[in-house]
Simulated assay, not measured.
Amino acid sequence: MSLKRLILASKSAARREVLANAGVSFDVQVAGVDEDALKVPGVDPRELAIELAKAKALAVSVQHPEAVVLGADQTLAFDGGLISKARDLQQARARLADMRGKPHQLHSGVALAKGGQIIWSGGDTAHMVVRDFSDAFLDAYIAAEGEELLYCVGSYRLEGMGSQLFDKVDGDYFTVLGMPLWLVLEQLRRFEVLPR
């Protein structure tokens, strides 16, 4: 059986690493989607993550109709609203301070497109509880992680020092990293990107 080419429509280093570590062969092309245009008031955060993933997959799929294109995105629901990536480290610090001692939900959406059409989409949610950390820890964390925090929707990287921010994570580790891997691998086998 000849396996189909896979393109990841995401610039996320964490997503690339998750797929590569799972032994998946893929190319990367950033979609360049206007995410803010899809973030309308009142939209369901989980559905938004899936819609963003679909938009990314479609944007790349029309350029490479022969390939299977994987789009992925995340949204963070906190205190009745959506949290976006921080503009700068001061905003990252303020957001983490706001989340201190409180729960939030991290939604990961994924979609596959081929020939300019969505052939599958899905998502998963992780429920996260941030611990009541000290200001000293927060300052040390910001200093250690630096600009990397600006690429993460919650201003944390669970695969790094960000693991120390939490009391509890209820959900799949890969979902937190932005790639609900088990869902994706199942569909990659289904659509002949990976062998059965």
Rank of each mutant, 00 (worst) to 15 (best):
R15A: 07
P41S: 04
D79T: 01
M179V: 15
V60W: 06
H104E: 03
R15W: 12
G42Y: 11
D124T: 02
Y141P: 02
P65L: 03
S108E: 08
V68Q: 03
E145C: 13
L188Q: 06
V62C: 11
R196M: 03
E35I: 01
M99D: 02
L185N: 03
L70H: 03
R46I: 03
S163M: 13
A37H: 08
S25Q: 15
L158E: 12
K11G: 14
A140C: 07
S12R: 07
A111H: 06
H127V: 13
I7M: 04
R131N: 15
R190C: 02
I119R: 00
M1K: 14
W120A: 13
A14I: 05
L138A: 09
S25V: 15
G116F: 08
G81H: 12
T75M: 07
A22L: 10
A97D: 14
F78H: 01
D124R: 07
V60I: 14
M1V: 13
Y156R: 00
V130E: 09
V130C: 09
L106Y: 00
A92H: 06
R190P: 00
A77T: 00
R15F: 10
E35G: 05
L183W: 02
Q91D: 13
A53D: 09
A77S: 14
K56W: 00
T175D: 04
P45C: 09
A94Q: 11
A140M: 07
E192G: 04
A113M: 03
L96A: 08
A97Q: 15
A37K: 13
L8H: 08
I118A: 01
A94G: 00
L58V: 14
D44H: 12
D98R: 13
V40N: 04
Q63W: 10
S25A: 15
K102A: 06
L48F: 10
H127F: 14
G123I: 04
R16T: 04
L138D: 09
E47A: 14
S12L: 10
A111I: 07
